[in-house]
Amino acid sequence: MKSVPLVAVIQFPGSNCEYETKRGILNSGMDSCIYRWNQCRELRDSQPDAYVLPGGFSFQDRVRAGAVAAKERIMDLVFSEAAGGKPVLGICNGAQILVESGMVPGWERGRIESALAANHISGRSGYLSRWVFLHVAAKAQQICPWLGKTGNGIIPLPIAHAEGRFVFSEENRERASSSAALKYCDEKGIESSDYPVNPNGSFLNLAGIMNDRGNVLAMMPHPERAFWMWQLPPWIPGEWGDRRDQSLRSGSHADTKGPGSLFFMSLADHFRGER
């Protein structure tokens, strides 16, 4: 591993969250570089310690979100690195690419065993932007390098997607809960399958799933959009709302980290532990 861990951010044609994702990694004390979809050799030669597939609209979600990007050559490398245990995070469109690559839940190597289908909301279709609340599954905190420092609190993050509903086939419904990493809940931590607590009809209120080993995490909410406290809406309730008020009062608002930083700081912590 490098003295300062290098996290590669993969830019697909149509990605649009690569720059703020890179900033989040840098602000967590790690190194980061953006690699274009056709920079396979540069990516391999730089031997990154972890990979992030950022949000956006790779290939404009044509055919199905993530389906076309999953077949890009650069994913061969990400796939084999994940199999070797390197941490991989897919955010939003990145999560869709991981699902369409079969990297999560990844029960049978290379097989597509889940889907991120169009949001299912009564009376509404298409894109949905809103802030949601999450809690982290206990097992995931232990084994997932992106979640080690997330704690037991309720985490507010924004979602922004049209296709974010995790689906599993009937025979895998039982097994799916073992892959749960992040689940939608209300501001008090209570799960519900009703809109808007579960904003898209996701199975088991899943907001993020991981592979069995825990090194690959696919999440629909955007941590990089809540990296700083000042990115939180003024109305956010609960603990993070109180912390936001506190940072405003103390004059540290510009530099106080927000709930989204936990995911990147977890990885930095993970690498410190390995060293």
Partner: peptide, 11 residues
């Protein structure tokens, strides 16, 4: 699979 099929996810 990633290297098989494109237009529909049967899940």
């Amino acid at each position: 699979r990633r290297d098989h099929g494109l237009l529909a996810n049967p899940v």
